[in-house]
Computed example of a mutant assay.
Amino acid sequence: MVRPIAPPGWPREVRPPDTPDWEATAGNWLLDLCPPDYRGYAGLRRHLVVLARFAVLHVEANHAAVRRGLSEARADLRDVATSDVVEAAVQTLLLEEARLIGTLRAVRLVEEAIRGRRYVARL
């Protein structure tokens, strides 16, 4: 028997694939990533693979927004905030970018697992 494996980057809120209730934990986690209004769409709640795709797109869009914010922050804020405030804003964007990179990896892994991919332990 093959033991269920969660690969590096797998979200701790989601049980590994093929364990009891793993899909329920995945669905709840994916909904938490998405805008609250997504909970009201029955099709997303019924079709986990569709919810996963929506979640991936949502996290990718957030990451793109942060990247844009990083590229424009200094120019956009220099006339309305002190240099210390601008640098603090840039640092916040950098922290958010790092968080989103991890979340993007996790949500992609969950989507792959929902689509049937399984992971094996390697030595």
Rank of each mutant, 00 (worst) to 15 (best):
A65T: 14
L100V: 00
L70A: 01
E72H: 06
R3E: 14
A55P: 01
A26P: 04
L123C: 12
A24C: 06
L100R: 00
V107A: 02
A98W: 04
R118S: 07
M1V: 14
S83R: 15
V2D: 15
P35E: 10
T92A: 09
I5C: 09
T82M: 06
R118P: 08
L100N: 00
A121L: 15
G116M: 07
L48P: 05
V66Y: 00
A61D: 11
D76T: 11
V14N: 00
I114R: 01
R108F: 11
T92Q: 07
P17R: 10
G40K: 06
R117M: 15
H63E: 13
V56E: 06
V2A: 15
R15E: 06
P4D: 03
W10Y: 08
L48Q: 10
A88Y: 08
L93S: 00
H47E: 15
D84N: 11
A98V: 05
V56T: 03
I5M: 13
E111S: 10
L109R: 00
L104E: 07
L57V: 12
L33P: 03
V14S: 01
L123V: 13
A113V: 05
W22K: 04
E23G: 02
V49N: 14
Y119H: 13
T92S: 07
T19Y: 04
G43C: 00
F54Y: 11
M1T: 12
R3G: 07
A113L: 07
C34G: 08
V90H: 03
R122I: 15
A65N: 12
D37G: 12
D32A: 14
L95S: 04
E23R: 10
L123A: 14
R46E: 15
N28C: 14
R108Y: 11
V56F: 02
D76P: 02
L57K: 09
V50D: 05
R78A: 14
R67N: 13
R105L: 07
T19G: 03
A64N: 11
V50E: 08
D37W: 15
V66Q: 00
C34M: 15
A81V: 10
R99I: 06
P8Q: 08
D18E: 10
L70Q: 01
W29P: 01
L51F: 03
A55V: 05
